[in-house]
Amino acid sequence: MKNLRMKMARMQLGMSQTELAQAVGVTRQTIGLIESGEFNPSIRLCVAICRALHTTLNDLFWEEEHGKDTL
């Protein structure tokens, strides 16, 4: 599933994929694959991305299950 929230957060800050990748210490391709939903990052990388984009894990990575209580 594509992570459009991450892409939006990045674009709102005016960051390119390359800039975000440099900020969190990964390759641009990795950022692209996370945004396109083809790679599941570790919680450590998720936290680094959230810090770089000044947002939270909930905002970028949490997905509500429709019709079910979560947790």
Binding site: G25, V26, T27, Q29, T30, L33, F39, P41, S42, R44, L45
Partner: peptide, 11 residues
């Protein structure tokens, strides 16, 4: 952990 030039996806 060993020092690597790759990120976690590349690893």
């Amino acid at each position: 952990m060993e020092k690597t030039r790759y990120d976690e996806r590349q690893e």
